[in-house]
């Protein structure tokens, strides 16, 4: 039990070192950022950098990298307004009124993407999406599988019985991944001490 208490104390100490409150406030502020207060955010990033540079030897390295991550997040938020975090997975949205539409999961249409239409394993039709990321299928065409692929290594599959699969929201994925890695860093730091 004592061991866990010490571990907990260590993690709390580490989090304090990284000025968690400051960072959380920073995130809160970033979510309300408009083009007007870009300079304010930049000052904040610089202040954070100075604070982190003043930290003890152990805190400085993770602190700086965290800052890099935060700065990048800020850039992202600034460029995408308050839109959810972008990603680059190719998706086939579905087939409506004989039109296949493909997009990236940040919502931008997938232009000039090859669409391959299959029925019972045989290729029935092949075409490219237009500027809206859509491709019209010939009338009365039967299909059970549609594949989309581009020349940049992206690919998507769509089948008739496509169910709504659960997708982890981007922010949740990022939070889980980051907390795992931070905990790993904290735990191994604790073990060395």
């Amino acid at each position: 039990m004592k061991k866990y208490r010490i571990l907990f104390k260590y993690i709390m100490k580490l989090l304090l070192k990284l000025r968690v409150n400051y960072i959380l406030n920073f995130f809160k502020n970033v979510s309300q950022v408009t083009a007007k207060n870009v300079s304010q955010v930049t000052t904040r990033i610089i202040t954070l950098q100075i604070i982190s540079l003043k930290r003890s030897a152990a805190g400085i390295f993770p602190g700086l990298l965290l800052l890099l991550i935060l700065a990048l997040t800020a850039i992202l938020v600034l460029f995408s307004g308050s839109a959810p975090v972008q990603a680059h997975e190719l998706l086939i949205e579905g087939v409506t009124e004989g039109k296949v539409s493909a997009s990236f999961d940040d919502g931008t249409p997938a232009i000039q993407v090859d669409i391959l239409v299959y029925h019972e394993g045989e290729l029935q039709y092949e075409g490219r999406t237009d500027r809206q990321g859509a491709l019209e299928l010939p009338e009365g065409m039967e299909w059970d599988k549609i594949e989309a692929r581009d020349n940049y290594g992206h690919r998507a599959l769509y089948t008739e019985e496509e169910e709504d699969t659960f997708r982890l929201p981007r922010w949740a994925g990022a939070l889980i991944g980051l907390s795992f890695l931070l905990l790993l860093a904290a735990f191994s730091g604790y073990r060395q001490k």
């Binding site: 390295f61 993770p62 990298l65 965290l66 890099l68 991550i69 990048l72 997040t73 990022a174 991944g177 980051l178 890695l181 931070l182 790993l184 860093a185 191994s188």
Partner: peptide, 9 residues
């Protein structure tokens, strides 16, 4: 792990 975090995000 900190560098991995930067790569990951």
């Amino acid at each position: 792990s900190m560098v991995t975090a930067a790569l990951f995000i």
